[in-house]
Write a protein that binds this DNA or RNA. Structure first.
Lengths: 84, 84
DNA sequence: CGTGTAAGGAATTCTGACACG
DNA sequence: CGTGTAAGGAATTCTGACACG
């Protein structure tokens, strides 16, 4: 399931998210789709799973930057309070 | 692996065959990709496997029509001789 | 910050046809 | 029969920007 074979349109359908959201997660370095020569993004089923987890975390109040590296282990849920 | 998620371009790369060949196998009713609203074909990993088997059979001298229904069981290799 | 959207361009795919042996 | 190719159109995706709260 590591093969990067899907266009963003398929990922959109599988996840129910928008292309904007999917591209944004990449911009934040949370997912790493491949590209065709022409620049078209290609995703794997693993990516799809990851995208859904990211979205879930965002729902839980995380910010994308907090999801980098090992994003889904040993983290505390934070619904408010930005420190700062 | 039944999910129809790949464009023909990806199938081309995975199989090494041409788009022409891939579309032709569909024309001969040997594979059944889905379609997006816009008419773009979508293939599964199963389809990819099937396509490779079809191609192999053609190499072995079969004709596409002979590959229909249960194409890969109980068949004799035929390298020449078309009856008739 | 995370997401929506309109804009224009580019990559990808589609169909139907002609060609070959 | 199985496959290549040039042709024109259509669907899909891309980037950069403005907007909102």
């Amino acid at each position: 399931m590591e093969e990067k074979v899907m266009n963003i349109g398929v990922v959109r359908e599988l996840t129910g998210l928008s292309e904007r959201q999917i591209r944004y997660y990449e911009e934040r370095k949370l997912i790493f789709p491949e590209r065709t020569k022409g620049g078209v993004r290609k995703y794997s089923f693993e990516d799809v799973k990851r995208i859904q987890e990211i979205h879930q975390k965002l729902q839980d109040g995380f910010r994308t930057l907090e999801l980098k590296k090992k994003p889904f282990v040993g983290q505390q849920v934070r619904l408010s309070g930005n420190g700062g």
